[in-house]
Amino acid sequence: MSNEHAAGHAHPEPHLPHGSWWPFFLAIAMSLVFLGVVMGPVVLIPGALILAVVLVGWWMEDFRWWKTNTGTGPGMARAGTLLFISSEVFIFGALFSTYFTFQRLADHWPDADVHFPIATVAFFTLVLFSSSYTIHQAEKRLKQGDRSGFNKWWGLTILLGTIFLGGQIYEYVVLISEGHVLGSSQFMTTFYMLTGTHGLHVAGGLVYLIVVWIRSLKGQFDEHRHAGPETAAMYWHFVDLVWVFVFSVLYLIPAYVLH
């Protein structure tokens, strides 16, 4: 209780939330989406729609709670994000283990008929890496109290992330049109699992970046209260870092070392 006086009036003691419908509905929405993956669009589409509504509801509650200073205090989100990221490391660890296991078992690795356009992928890689720079600039601006600078750099980050994701989708379209689908070979399976998992992380990250952006455009976050943008940036850097490994293992090593 005493340490918040020491910290000045930047962080007045927040008060606890009292009740929310969203956890209950989010659980239902998640169950429908997961089930929809195997049951097909009849379950998936309504599930995804409910999920979208619930997430908007959840974030609007965040928006209100920011104004009324409801929650458990800053610092929680930072620690939680760090732990979440370290848990995610093991997801990618398991996927890479699978990749290397299959590589060890295979006679030819990668498939002889798969040729990635390294230059194009390198361009999109550069785009993603620069988004790490822009998000860092945005964060720096916010901590200096420059909210409009934050909004510009943050918007630029969203743009760069979207370009990267677009590049990924374009690459998938080309590969599928060439007949390289998920089940074509062990290499393609692990390729799609790794890039797909990474792509989902980029997509999820983008959604959260947009949520932060909208909240910021509506006047939230400043040099004292910036847990939202800060955790979003931490997560975004992590997603970028994972791409270093994905790009090296899936593109560079097969193209320049194994061939």
Partner: peptide, 23 residues
């Protein structure tokens, strides 16, 4: 502590259990 660090996520963790059990 006055509550868990993330009270809403805490509720979410619980509410995933009934649908999982039903499935």
């Amino acid at each position: 502590a006055k509550d868990m660090a993330f009270p809403r996520i805490n509720a979410l963790s619980f509410w995933l259990i009934p649908p999982a059990g039903i499935l």
